[in-house]
Design a protein around this nucleic acid. Structure first.
Length: 223
DNA sequence: GCGACAG
DNA sequence: ATCTTGTCGC
Protein backbone atom coordinates (compact mmCIF):
# COMPACT_ATOMS: atom_id res chain seq x y z
CA UNK A 1 0.00 0.00 0.00
CA UNK A 2 1.11 3.50 -0.76
CA UNK A 3 0.48 5.70 2.23
CA UNK A 4 1.40 8.85 0.35
CA UNK A 5 -1.36 8.10 -2.16
CA UNK A 6 -3.87 7.28 0.55
CA UNK A 7 -2.96 10.50 2.28
CA UNK A 8 -3.74 12.42 -0.93
CA UNK A 9 -7.05 10.60 -1.16
CA UNK A 10 -7.90 11.64 2.37
CA UNK A 11 -7.23 15.32 1.73
CA UNK A 12 -9.30 15.06 -1.41
CA UNK A 13 -12.27 13.44 0.27
CA UNK A 14 -12.05 15.58 3.39
CA UNK A 15 -12.77 18.64 1.26
CA UNK A 16 -16.14 17.10 0.38
CA UNK A 17 -17.31 16.49 3.93
CA UNK A 18 -20.38 18.55 4.84
CA UNK A 19 -20.21 19.86 8.39
CA UNK A 20 -23.79 21.02 8.76
CA UNK A 21 -27.20 19.43 8.91
CA UNK A 22 -30.93 19.94 8.97
CA UNK A 23 -31.72 16.95 11.13
CA UNK A 24 -33.90 19.06 13.40
CA UNK A 25 -36.07 20.07 10.44
CA UNK A 26 -36.69 16.44 9.66
CA UNK A 27 -35.70 14.12 12.51
CA UNK A 28 -34.35 10.63 11.83
CA UNK A 29 -36.77 7.74 12.31
CA UNK A 30 -34.10 5.08 12.01
CA UNK A 31 -30.65 5.46 13.54
CA UNK A 32 -27.90 2.94 12.93
CA UNK A 33 -24.85 1.90 14.87
CA UNK A 34 -21.80 0.54 13.02
CA UNK A 35 -18.79 -1.26 14.41
CA UNK A 36 -15.96 -3.44 13.20
CA UNK A 37 -14.21 -6.32 14.89
CA UNK A 38 -11.68 -8.96 13.88
CA UNK A 39 -11.35 -12.76 13.96
CA UNK A 40 -8.72 -15.34 13.10
CA UNK A 41 -5.91 -13.24 14.52
CA UNK A 42 -7.00 -10.34 12.36
CA UNK A 43 -7.24 -12.19 9.05
CA UNK A 44 -11.02 -11.78 8.99
CA UNK A 45 -12.80 -8.45 9.37
CA UNK A 46 -16.27 -8.52 10.86
CA UNK A 47 -18.54 -5.48 10.38
CA UNK A 48 -21.89 -5.06 12.08
CA UNK A 49 -24.82 -2.70 11.61
CA UNK A 50 -27.77 -2.37 13.94
CA UNK A 51 -30.89 -0.34 13.20
CA UNK A 52 -32.76 1.30 16.07
CA UNK A 53 -36.07 3.10 15.78
CA UNK A 54 -36.04 6.67 17.04
CA UNK A 55 -37.05 7.85 19.59
CA UNK A 56 -37.97 4.48 21.09
CA UNK A 57 -34.44 3.12 20.53
CA UNK A 58 -35.77 -0.40 19.94
CA UNK A 59 -33.56 -2.76 17.98
CA UNK A 60 -35.19 -3.24 14.58
CA UNK A 61 -32.61 -5.15 12.56
CA UNK A 62 -28.96 -6.11 12.49
CA UNK A 63 -26.58 -7.48 9.88
CA UNK A 64 -23.06 -8.82 10.13
CA UNK A 65 -20.60 -9.15 7.25
CA UNK A 66 -17.29 -10.96 7.18
CA UNK A 67 -14.46 -10.66 4.68
CA UNK A 68 -10.70 -11.01 4.34
CA UNK A 69 -8.90 -8.14 6.08
CA UNK A 70 -7.69 -5.66 3.49
CA UNK A 71 -5.02 -3.76 5.37
CA UNK A 72 -3.15 -3.67 8.67
CA UNK A 73 -4.03 -1.08 11.29
CA UNK A 74 -2.07 2.11 10.83
CA UNK A 75 -3.04 5.11 13.00
CA UNK A 76 -4.60 7.70 10.73
CA UNK A 77 -5.56 5.16 8.05
CA UNK A 78 -8.14 3.13 9.91
CA UNK A 79 -10.93 3.80 7.42
CA UNK A 80 -9.16 2.02 4.57
CA UNK A 81 -9.01 -1.08 6.74
CA UNK A 82 -12.64 -0.95 7.83
CA UNK A 83 -14.80 0.52 5.10
CA UNK A 84 -14.90 -2.50 2.75
CA UNK A 85 -16.60 -4.65 5.40
CA UNK A 86 -18.81 -1.74 6.47
CA UNK A 87 -20.05 -1.31 2.90
CA UNK A 88 -20.82 -5.00 2.71
CA UNK A 89 -22.86 -5.01 5.91
CA UNK A 90 -24.55 -1.79 4.79
CA UNK A 91 -25.69 -3.44 1.57
CA UNK A 92 -27.29 -6.25 3.55
CA UNK A 93 -29.69 -3.94 5.41
CA UNK A 94 -33.32 -4.26 4.29
CA UNK A 95 -33.82 -0.54 4.88
CA UNK A 96 -31.38 2.33 5.25
CA UNK A 97 -31.12 4.56 8.35
CA UNK A 98 -31.37 8.36 8.36
CA UNK A 99 -28.34 8.73 10.61
CA UNK A 100 -25.39 6.48 11.44
CA UNK A 101 -23.20 6.39 14.56
CA UNK A 102 -19.78 5.05 13.60
CA UNK A 103 -17.31 3.67 16.13
CA UNK A 104 -14.24 5.88 15.63
CA UNK A 105 -13.53 9.51 14.74
CA UNK A 106 -15.15 11.71 12.13
CA UNK A 107 -13.35 14.96 11.31
CA UNK A 108 -11.25 14.76 14.50
CA UNK A 109 -8.47 13.25 12.41
CA UNK A 110 -5.07 14.62 11.30
CA UNK A 111 -6.39 15.15 7.77
CA UNK A 112 -10.04 15.50 8.80
CA UNK A 113 -11.15 12.14 7.43
CA UNK A 114 -11.73 9.59 10.13
CA UNK A 115 -13.73 6.44 9.37
CA UNK A 116 -17.06 8.10 10.23
CA UNK A 117 -16.47 10.81 7.63
CA UNK A 118 -15.05 8.45 5.03
CA UNK A 119 -17.95 6.03 5.29
CA UNK A 120 -20.49 8.83 5.37
CA UNK A 121 -19.15 10.20 2.11
CA UNK A 122 -19.14 6.78 0.46
CA UNK A 123 -22.82 6.16 1.11
CA UNK A 124 -23.81 9.82 1.33
CA UNK A 125 -25.65 9.51 4.62
CA UNK A 126 -25.40 11.64 7.79
CA UNK A 127 -22.82 10.11 10.14
CA UNK A 128 -21.43 10.90 13.58
CA UNK A 129 -18.09 9.72 14.89
CA UNK A 130 -18.15 8.32 18.44
CA UNK A 131 -14.64 7.43 19.61
CA UNK A 132 -13.35 6.22 22.95
CA UNK A 133 -9.84 7.59 22.59
CA UNK A 134 -8.19 10.71 21.23
CA UNK A 135 -6.41 10.53 17.90
CA UNK A 136 -5.27 14.13 17.57
CA UNK A 137 -5.93 17.54 19.07
CA UNK A 138 -5.90 18.88 22.61
CA UNK A 139 -8.53 19.53 25.23
CA UNK A 140 -8.76 20.97 28.71
CA UNK A 141 -9.37 18.65 31.68
CA UNK A 142 -13.03 17.75 32.11
CA UNK A 143 -15.14 18.18 35.20
CA UNK A 144 -16.17 15.01 37.04
CA UNK A 145 -19.87 15.52 36.58
CA UNK A 146 -21.73 13.71 33.84
CA UNK A 147 -22.41 16.06 30.97
CA UNK A 148 -19.09 17.86 31.37
CA UNK A 149 -17.65 18.81 28.00
CA UNK A 150 -14.67 20.49 26.40
CA UNK A 151 -13.87 21.30 22.78
CA UNK A 152 -11.19 19.16 21.13
CA UNK A 153 -8.94 21.70 19.42
CA UNK A 154 -6.37 21.28 16.69
CA UNK A 155 -4.63 23.97 14.64
CA UNK A 156 -7.11 26.59 15.72
CA UNK A 157 -10.31 24.74 14.96
CA UNK A 158 -12.70 22.67 17.02
CA UNK A 159 -12.81 19.10 15.74
CA UNK A 160 -15.03 17.40 18.31
CA UNK A 161 -16.64 17.54 21.71
CA UNK A 162 -14.97 15.63 24.49
CA UNK A 163 -17.97 14.63 26.53
CA UNK A 164 -18.40 12.75 29.80
CA UNK A 165 -21.48 10.66 29.14
CA UNK A 166 -21.55 9.01 32.54
CA UNK A 167 -20.17 9.37 36.07
CA UNK A 168 -16.71 7.92 36.67
CA UNK A 169 -16.34 6.96 33.03
CA UNK A 170 -13.77 8.20 30.55
CA UNK A 171 -15.17 10.75 28.12
CA UNK A 172 -16.29 10.12 24.55
CA UNK A 173 -15.02 12.00 21.50
CA UNK A 174 -18.02 13.04 19.45
CA UNK A 175 -17.44 14.54 16.04
CA UNK A 176 -18.99 15.38 12.70
CA UNK A 177 -18.85 12.44 10.34
CA UNK A 178 -20.71 13.81 7.33
CA UNK A 179 -23.79 16.00 6.89
CA UNK A 180 -23.98 16.68 10.66
CA UNK A 181 -22.76 19.73 12.58
CA UNK A 182 -20.49 19.47 15.60
CA UNK A 183 -23.22 20.58 18.00
CA UNK A 184 -25.78 18.46 16.19
CA UNK A 185 -23.54 15.43 16.61
CA UNK A 186 -23.44 15.84 20.37
CA UNK A 187 -27.16 16.60 20.53
CA UNK A 188 -28.08 13.40 18.73
CA UNK A 189 -25.70 11.34 20.80
CA UNK A 190 -27.29 12.79 23.94
CA UNK A 191 -30.72 11.84 22.63
CA UNK A 192 -29.65 8.23 22.18
CA UNK A 193 -28.33 7.60 25.68
CA UNK A 194 -29.90 4.98 27.95
CA UNK A 195 -27.79 4.90 31.08
CA UNK A 196 -24.56 3.47 29.72
CA UNK A 197 -21.30 5.09 28.68
CA UNK A 198 -21.99 4.50 25.00
CA UNK A 199 -25.07 5.66 23.11
CA UNK A 200 -27.46 2.82 22.23
CA UNK A 201 -26.64 2.54 18.51
CA UNK A 202 -22.93 2.21 19.27
CA UNK A 203 -23.47 -0.05 22.25
CA UNK A 204 -25.60 -2.48 20.26
CA UNK A 205 -23.33 -2.45 17.25
CA UNK A 206 -20.47 -3.21 19.61
CA UNK A 207 -22.33 -6.13 21.14
CA UNK A 208 -23.26 -7.55 17.77
CA UNK A 209 -19.84 -7.01 16.23
CA UNK A 210 -18.11 -8.85 19.03
CA UNK A 211 -20.76 -11.48 19.67
CA UNK A 212 -21.11 -10.80 23.38
CA UNK A 213 -23.56 -12.00 26.01
CA UNK A 214 -25.51 -8.76 26.35
CA UNK A 215 -26.69 -9.75 22.92
CA UNK A 216 -28.12 -13.15 23.83
CA UNK A 217 -31.46 -11.68 24.73
CA UNK A 218 -32.18 -10.11 21.38
CA UNK A 219 -34.23 -7.67 23.41
CA UNK A 220 -36.74 -5.72 21.38
CA UNK A 221 -36.33 -7.50 18.05
CA UNK A 222 -39.66 -7.87 16.41
CA UNK A 223 -41.59 -5.57 18.73
C1' DG B 1 15.37 13.82 17.49
C1' DC B 2 11.44 12.17 20.78
C1' DG B 3 6.78 10.94 21.74
C1' DA B 4 1.79 10.06 20.25
C1' DC B 5 -0.94 7.17 17.76
C1' DA B 6 -9.15 5.85 16.40
C1' DG B 7 -9.87 0.35 15.98
C1' DA C 1 -8.97 -4.69 17.70
C1' DT C 2 -7.81 -9.19 20.58
C1' DC C 3 -6.28 -12.52 24.52
C1' DT C 4 -9.64 -12.84 29.50
C1' DT C 5 -11.89 -13.63 35.84
C1' DG C 6 -12.20 -11.69 39.29
C1' DT C 7 -12.27 -7.67 41.67
C1' DC C 8 -12.06 -2.86 43.60
C1' DG C 9 -14.94 1.26 44.15
C1' DC C 10 -19.18 3.99 44.15
Amino acid sequence: MDLAALREQQLDLAAKVIREDRLDQDPPRLIAGADVGFEQSGDVTRAAFVLLSYPSLDLVEYQVARMATAMPYIPGFLSFREYPALLEAWSMLSQKPDLVFVDGHGISHPRRLGVASHFGLLVDVPTIGVAKKRLCGKFAPLGDEPGARAPLMDKGEQLAWVWRSKKRCNPLFVSTGHRVSLDGALTWVERCMAGYRLPEPTRWADAVASGRPAFKRLQAIGR
